[in-house]
Design a binder for these strands. Structure first.
Length: 561
RNA sequence: UGGGGCGUAGCCAAGUGGUAAGGCAACGGGUUUUGAUCCCGUGAUUCCCAGGUUCGAAUCCUGGCGCCCCAGCCA
């Protein structure tokens, strides 16, 4: 029953197809695959596909392969292969022993190409790239047959063997499937299936100088691995007839089927490997793992929990219509997980000195604070309280507007887990900037309690000045300033110039010196933060993973901190 | 003007002839030692449009309209 209800929750048209294929006996075992090309880092759009493919395998008792689609050595690198494996594991999915490479099948693929030649279904074409384009026709005009289309089989066999042995320079000739130059589907107009590339391959080194194209490699690799459901994105929809044509014309060991779904688009972000690569190459971000990047490496460094990304993937669903998911959905998933799991701490990002004038000069109290008030089992910690503190600059206003219930002259607020304090004096510099606050505290309110039942609207976070740990904190906003970057043509102009703000004078609660890598905590009232990879024991560097929801800034009129 | 897809609330998304699920966002209200969390409440007389079939249509039929993808020796 519970299995059924979870199936219902995750239900989508592809899972329905899988379920039908299983119940109709159409297939006995489910096998899916995630087939990245190692030419860039994985992003959250890939996460959607990963969760879909691995999720189906998990829920239907099947398996999911990780297969690198490494058929073009001019673009692919070992670095990407390693990064992709790291990212999938981090996401929490496991290919077990099923790690494959399309390049594992080069010999078999070559034999099948020969088979196509022998059956009169492929030929070596000497036309140049320009000529091939010209002969291909247009969307509305049919193509024309290449003059080399009817070469004798023996000649094709001989030429193809010479292509393999390196007799020709790149571009000299290609192997083409012989299908239909007049097809309305351009993919069927004698698609190229092998081309000459004299580039060292990350895995096969210099063994090959001809490489199969995606169309020729993908379906056959699926067949070799006995993939039952080959799930890909919509742009491959009109490749399906070609996918099927190869399967039908080759003695492959199984009969896989391709199914297409809509790729993920996210507001305020770009999920195009080409553009992400450009951002990295042009140093518009610090790298593939820049915390503003939608890459899994970036999200990880930013402090997004993998569970949140998986939850997001299941919430957005899978369908065939083009859609732009609101990034707020992702943020909700992140906050949801972090709210449950992140320990609470206090940190002042923009410090304002507060002196408690009636607090004994050398006294220090250790006050107890809950690590997570919503989760008793997370325990408590202790925080030092002393005469000199820091509070957030935004938490004081000399002339507060209505509904501002933080600190102001002659006002009383609660210091969380500390005491109630009242502001008695405001110290300013020559420019009139507030530099320090003088306050008094009520000794009867230790721990922030009000034994007399008095109501205090404002509760502020704070940190003891002499005990505070200094840190740099990096605040991030969307990398792009508009919800659909690039719609108006120039994507670079849509880059948000203030997507990174670095705060250098942040004051953290002492126990934060021990914040471990990969641990995300909540700074009360400020948001979720994690240690950055740049952090060292001498110089702490934290990232703001995401802020808390903030209805106060909304009432102020959209001003953000 | 060729071929392949898709149109259900601001954004996702169920629904497959029996009278429009759910989530996000937004907006009210309650609780609160985080203006957070949590809780409660508010949305489609209508499913791109127009006809038709039917007792009954988002679902079937016909005709429009709109959007996306395809002319790499990329994937």
């Amino acid at each position: 029953m519970s299995e059924q209800s979870s199936d219902t929750e995750n239900r989508n048209f592809i899972r329905d197809i899988v379920a039908d294929d299983l119940s109709s006996g159409h297939c006995k075992e489910i096998a899916t695959r995630f087939p990245p090309e190692p030419n860039g880092y994985l992003h959250i759009g890939h996460a959607k596909s990963i969760c879909l493919n691995f999720g189906i395998a998990q829920d239907f008792g099947g398996r999911c392969h990780l297969r690198f689609d490494d058929t073009n050595p001019t673009r692919e690198e070992q670095e990407y292969i390693d990064a992709i494996k790291t990212d999938i594991r981090w996401l929490g999915l496991d290919w077990g022993k099923h790690l494959y490479y399309a390049s594992d099948y080069f010999e078999q693929l070559y034999d099948w190409a020969v088979h196509l030649i022998q059956t009169g279904n492929a030929y070596v074409d000497d036309l140049t790239a320009d000529e091939i384009r010209d002969y291909r026709g247009t969307l509305t005009d049919p193509g024309r047959n290449s003059p080399y289309r009817d070469r004798p089989i023996e000649e094709n066999l001989h030429l193809f063997a010479r292509m393999r042995s390196g007799d020709f320079p790149e571009g000299r000739c290609v192997l083409r499937a012989k299908i239909d130059m007049a097809s309305g589907n351009i993919n069927l107009r004698d698609p190229i299936i092998y081309r000459i590339i004299h580039t060292k391959h990350p895995r096969t080194a210099s063994k090959w100088c001809i490489y199969p194209t995606y169309d020729f490699a993908h379906g056959q690799s699926d067949a070799i691995e006995h993939i039952s459901h080959s799930i890909c994105t919509l742009e491959f929809e009109d490749h399906r007839p070609l996918y099927d044509w190869f399967i039908e014309n080759l003695p492959v060991p199984s009969r896989p089927h391709q199914h297409e779904f809509a790729r993920l688009n996210l507001s305020y972000t770009v999920l195009s490997k080409r553009i992400l690569t450009q951002l990295v190459r042009e140093n518009r971000v610090s790298g593939w793992d820049d915390p503003r990047m939608p890459t899994l490496a970036g999200l990880r460094r930013r402090g997004f929990p993998p569970e949140a990304i998986r939850d997001f993937a299941s919430r957005i669903g899978v369908a065939k219509r083009d859609a732009v998911v609101d990034v707020a959905m992702l943020e909700h998933c992140v906050r949801d997980i972090l709210n449950q799991n992140a320990d609470r701490r206090m940190a002042v990002l923009r410090p304002l000195k507060v002196i408690i004038e009636n607090y004994p000069d050398s006294q220090v109290e250790e006050l107890e604070a809950a690590n997570n008030p919503g989760n008793e089992s997370s325990g408590t910690r202790t925080i030092p309280f002393s005469r000199e503190l820091y509070i957030e600059q935004d938490d004081f206003m000399e002339a507060p507007p209505k509904k501002f219930f933080r600190l102001a002259p002659d006002r009383e607020v609660r210091l969380r887990y500390g005491y109630l304090i009242t502001c008695t004096n405001v110290i300013k510099d020559v420019n009139g900037e507030v530099t320090e606050l003088r306050c008094t505290y009520d000794p009867a309110t230790r721990g922030g309690k009000t034994p007399d039942g008095r109501k205090v609207k404002g509760t502020l976070h704070w940190v003891s000045a002499s005990h505070a740990v200094d840190a740099e904190v990096r605040l991030y906003e969307y990398l792009f300033a508009v919800s659909e970057p690039g719609v108006d043509g120039n994507l670079i102009q849509d880059i948000n110039p203030t997507s990174l703000e670095v705060l250098n004078n942040c004051k953290l609660e002492p126990c934060l010196v021990n914040l471990s890598k990969g641990q995300t905590v909540q700074f009360e009232r400020m948001g979720y933060f994690c240690s950055d990879t740049d952090s060292t024991p001498e110089r702490l560097v934290l990232n703001r993973t995401i802020g808390l929801r903030d209805s106060w800034s909304k009432t102020l009129g959209g001003k953000t901190g």
